[in-house]
Each structure stands twice: as structure tokens, then as C-alpha cells.
Design a protein around this nucleic acid. Sequence first.
DNA 1: GAATCATTTCCATAATTCTAGAAATATGGA
DNA 2: TCCATATTTCTAGAATTATGGAAATGATTC
Lengths: 117, 117
Amino acid sequence: MEMINTPSPDAAVEILAALAQSSRLAVFRELVSVGSTGLAAGAIAKRVGVPTSSLSFHLTNLKQAGLVAERREGRSIIYTVRFETMRGLMAYLLENCCAEEGSGAAIASFINEGERA
Amino acid sequence: MEMINTPSPDAAVEILAALAQSSRLAVFRELVSVGSTGLAAGAIAKRVGVPTSSLSFHLTNLKQAGLVAERREGRSIIYTVRFETMRGLMAYLLENCCAEEGSGAAIASFINEGERA
DNA sequence: GAATCATTTCCATAATTCTAGAAATATGGA
DNA sequence: TCCATATTTCTAGAATTATGGAAATGATTC
């Protein structure tokens, strides 16, 4: 049973910042959409429509935040999403930004779309 | 039954960017912690430890992203969290960044901490 | 080991964001 | 009205982030 690794506040900021830029969010969503198959850098550049050098800059940022992993395959470098990091961010936000203190009510209240009864 | 208003990608970036700065995240967490009571700007500045002019800059940013609301009370301006916006962000992330396409599996898979079986 | 393809690194520039003092604005009370 | 308090706006400088062309690196094939 995989444990969720909730990030420190600093790490949370880093992850949020990585996602808080339109090209990067687009890149990340593309990677999410293909799951563990991943995408080569060039393919991402084509899909998202940014020059490869800019893309590389953004991929470095996402990698640094732990949001993506890379593996080399032939001449390509394949990027994949790291869902654990994303799950950690969700856990952080749920715990710290979605409900007041303690009250593990965050998840329940989120799922029920809800204000208190 | 309150509906969740999922933000557009641009709005999502704006909300993420608002949270992706340590002072602002700290401000937001303070506001979450006090719920609908809210906090006066001065009180926030004291708790977070930033000069009031800097704080004002950050509050403007959070307000612009829809993450906080303000109301005047005497000479103070009281800030409160807007949970709807936060819920919208969570919904966006769940739908777009936590699982591949369609498969409303995102919530379930998040709650079960889980990779596929 | 040249030619080619994929990607990154380097670099300069542009753009944005952050910081905080000082001045301005708004409210409430003597 | 005058004064104190609360907060914002203005401003300028510092710092960070983003952009994209050109050169460098790595891998593959012949």
C-alpha cells in the first residue's frame, strides 16, 4: 500500500510554481494524457508548439519539481509523469488549503462539494 | 447541492501562480486556518511577517485569482478564504493532472493512493 | 568517422514579479 | 476639525523567469 509523501511547504511551492505556467501546464497535461508510455521531447514540442530550447527549459523545471521523469530511448529522451508527486501536492492542498485545521474533513467535504451541513 | 466551477486552463494557471509563492501560500494557509472569521490585513502581516505594503501586493494577487474575499469592518479590511475557488482548482487538477483522460478514476485512484491494480 | 537526428546548453534579451519605503486614502473617535 | 489607526497606492530598484537562436553534446546508421 503506497504511502503518500506530502511535500514540505517549500516543495509545495516549487511544485505549484512548476504547474503555474501555461506552457508547462500544457506539457504536463500532455504527459498525463499518455500515461506511462511517455513522450519524446520533440513530440512534446510539436504538440505544445514551443521551440525545443524553450521546451527544454520547461522540462528541466518540471523535472526539478519532481513532476516528470526522463529516460533515454535511442536518440530520444522520453518524459513521463510522476503521479506520486502530483498525489503529494493534492494531499498537501487538501490538508492545508481546503479545510481548517485538523478535521480530516477535507477529503470528505471536497467530495461532497460541500459547506458544512 | 453546490456545483463545482472548474476553472479554464488560464484561470487554473492564475490560481496556481497565486499559491506558488511562499508568502502568499503562508497568507492563504492562515486564512484557511481561521475560516469564515477571516483576518484583518494588519493581523495577517503580523502573522506572516511581511511589511504591509508587500502584503497588500500579495493580497491583491490572491483576490485577483479569486482565492480570497475582502470586507471592510470599521477601519480594518477583513480577508477570508474563498473555498469555492480552491475546490475548483482541486477539481481541475484531479481531472486534468491526476489521471489519463476520461476515466473518472482520478478521485478513486487518489483516495486509494493508487497505481492501477 | 562522417552524416544525421534528437536534445540540451549557452547566451543575450525581454518580460514579469517581488520588495519595501514613502506618500496617499479611508475610517472612527476626541 | 484634528489625530491616530488601518490599509492601499505609488514608485523604483532588485531578482527571477521566460524566450528562442545558435552552438554543443549524444546516439545511431552507414
